[in-house]
Amino acid sequence: MRESSANRRQRILALVEARGEVRVTALAAELGVSVITARRDVEELSRVGKIRRGHGVARSLVPMRPPPTPERWSGGVVALVVPERHTYLNEVVHGARVALEEASVRVALHPTPHTAGVERPVVRNVLARESARGLLIAPRWRTADEQEDDQWLADVDVPVVLMERAPRVGSSLHARDSVCTDHWYGVHLAVEHLMSLGHRRLVLAARDDSPTARAVRTAFAEICQARPWVQEWAVVLSAPDAGADPTTTFQEQELVEVMRERGATGVIMHSDTDALILVQQLAEAGLTVARDYSVVAYDDVVASLGSPPLTAVAPAKTEVGRLAAELLLERLDRGPASGPARQVSVLPELKVRGSTRNLNV
């Protein structure tokens, strides 16, 4: 599904405002469009007064924040706290680390074990022993109950930015800064792509042991319920160990059983690591991707390595990390009470590959 010009221009505006100045050729490469298309978008944004045009460049109207001097940060660090062995967050960490190091800020990475309640002592020790002046954190929140226990994090007395985690509405963390992928929009991209190809019976195979998984499942249910032209839809677990939340009410049948029972021809799979396994399991059951069904993976960590390469929703994970780091730097520069908390949503993209088939032809 082609991206609308409005969405593309919004992305251009975000890139230009984040970097101050970007060459049109660089914009074209990042957005995957022709230089002519990027130039026309820049011209339109300039015409409506949102950016300034230069010779082959687009310039922001928003003054850039000067980076902190190395002397300011002497003796202090910014702590990065993320769950260990969490492949999805690797690119988020990379984006944050690069942004902090470019600002001459020392970074201390602290992976946390997959044990409930372990993050609190880790953060306490980081603040006490390393004089950390700011905290970037992706809480594990493996179950919904863990997410309820967030008061301790809200009470941390240094600037905190949540990475790839959206605080619950009305929770103690609702007034903290956060930068997160808009997973509702990601699921919307996947559903709309499948429907544009004529698929009306859809299944989501998703995990249930992370905030991303729960957001994806909730979005899928909302989107399908709101579209009367979706004739059938169902949700199953994408992996045997993916049901960490005992309160889940979603089905736990085998994917192949549900697909045959519902006559499903379109499948969304989270995560894409699980997607590669599920595609193989379906092949063993006699169902071939792109012939018998179309699949869209969610995460795009390894989806391109599938056979065939899997169409995938690709969260802008590096951008999430970079924006989170820049938001934290702004708090550290101007003081934690320098303005209202910001909740930044970053739109993912759809990478169309060889795992979807058009039923309309």
Results as ranks from 00 to 15, higher is better:
199 H>W: 13
128 A>F: 04
172 S>W: 12
291 R>K: 11
103 A>I: 11
164 E>S: 15
163 M>G: 02
125 N>D: 15
335 G>C: 02
317 K>Y: 03
55 H>C: 11
121 P>H: 03
65 R>K: 10
239 A>E: 08
259 M>F: 01
331 R>Y: 02
151 Q>K: 09
216 V>Q: 07
86 H>M: 14
131 S>W: 09
129 R>I: 11
203 V>F: 02
269 M>N: 05
216 V>T: 05
32 G>P: 03
35 V>N: 10
98 V>M: 10
359 L>K: 06
290 A>M: 08
127 L>V: 09
185 Y>K: 15
262 R>M: 14
161 V>N: 03
19 R>Q: 15
164 E>W: 07
82 V>S: 06
278 L>E: 07
309 P>R: 03
78 V>S: 01
268 I>S: 03
141 W>P: 05
105 V>A: 07
129 R>G: 06
155 D>L: 10
359 L>D: 04
169 V>E: 14
151 Q>T: 09
177 D>N: 12
307 S>G: 12
264 A>Q: 00
48 V>M: 06
355 S>A: 04
137 I>Y: 04
350 L>P: 01
239 A>D: 13
203 V>G: 00
303 A>P: 01
97 R>Y: 08
206 A>E: 02
349 E>H: 10
162 L>P: 03
111 P>I: 02
66 P>L: 08
218 T>Y: 01
288 T>S: 09
39 R>K: 14
197 L>Y: 01
251 Q>W: 14
87 T>R: 14
55 H>F: 13
111 P>Q: 06
151 Q>M: 09
22 V>C: 04
151 Q>P: 07
272 D>L: 03
15 L>K: 07
166 A>Y: 07
92 V>F: 02
262 R>W: 10
172 S>K: 11
318 T>N: 09
43 E>L: 15
25 T>R: 15
196 S>D: 11
275 A>H: 04
107 V>I: 12
14 A>V: 14
36 I>D: 12
28 A>F: 00
190 A>M: 03
134 G>F: 00
128 A>R: 14
235 V>Y: 01
50 K>A: 13
347 L>W: 13
177 D>R: 07
301 V>I: 14
313 V>N: 02
342 R>A: 11
275 A>Y: 00
10 Q>E: 15
30 E>N: 07
81 V>N: 06
100 L>I: 02
145 D>W: 05
350 L>V: 02
353 R>P: 00
153 L>C: 06
348 P>E: 05
108 A>L: 15
5 S>M: 10
124 R>T: 15
280 Q>S: 08
37 T>K: 06
235 V>I: 15
333 D>P: 08
116 A>W: 01
348 P>C: 11
331 R>N: 02
288 T>E: 13
278 L>F: 00
228 P>M: 12
133 R>V: 06
181 T>I: 06
55 H>R: 15
130 E>Q: 14
89 L>N: 09
5 S>T: 13
266 G>D: 03
285 A>G: 08
193 H>T: 05
322 R>A: 10
341 A>C: 08
194 L>I: 08
310 L>T: 01
235 V>N: 11
350 L>K: 05
301 V>W: 03
27 L>M: 02
107 V>A: 09
197 L>T: 04
252 E>C: 14
158 V>D: 00
172 S>A: 15
47 R>E: 10
127 L>R: 00
221 A>D: 10
48 V>E: 12
183 H>N: 14
